[in-house]
Amino acid sequence: MAYSLDFGALAEYAPIFAKGVAVTSELTLVGGVLGVGLGILCAWVRTDGPKALRPIVSLYVEVIRNTPFLIQLFFIFFGLPSIGVSLTEMQAAILAMVVNLGAYAAEIIRAGIEATPRGQFEAGASLAMTRLQIFRNVVLVPALQRIWPALSSQIIIVMFGSAVCSQIAVEDITFAANFIQSRNFRAFEAYIVATVLYLILALILRQIMRSLGTIIFPRRRVVR
């Protein structure tokens, strides 16, 4: 079993990998920001928002968390056009990632909100703040701080999930690797490169989340 690695054979495909890195980064960045935003909104509804919306949000969260991402993606890309909503591959991929991350992030953030000491709500209330004002100014930031590591991991998981988007011809890293190995049959090399690229992106993303954390949360967590 002698297999000699030949990364030189990949050299001419470097631009395809470069494009793959750009696409995966874009998916993760846009999906991450919008997904966390959606997650905050859903977590608010489920904890403190209008009661009428709660069943709808619960249904959304449970459906997404209990079905495969690939099916969600296919549903959006192949299913929606039948009701007249046609999206490009990229739009469909981003929408699928936002919808997916939104549901998971909602549950993570909800855990952070529910761990808020009652005294924080009471302090806000006795200062005559409305429930929404208390949520925005008092509850939200410490809640995010509590679950920041879990949320960071979830965003990274979603970045890995983006590999699935190659199935609808989104030209991400996985797409690049598939494409190259189908041309030169250097599957081992192509997937080693893809693996390393994902690894590097994940490490960078983790670092970004950590730095972002120190900016948003200037104080270490105070346990009470």
């Binding site: 009471e122 006795s126 200062l127």
Partner: peptide, 16 residues
């Protein structure tokens, strides 16, 4: 609540 303020045993300052 605009007319009465309250101070608590456990302070309840906003930690962030």
């Amino acid at each position: 609540r605009l007319k009465v303020g309250m101070i608590f045993q456990s302070f309840n300052l906003f930690p962030h």
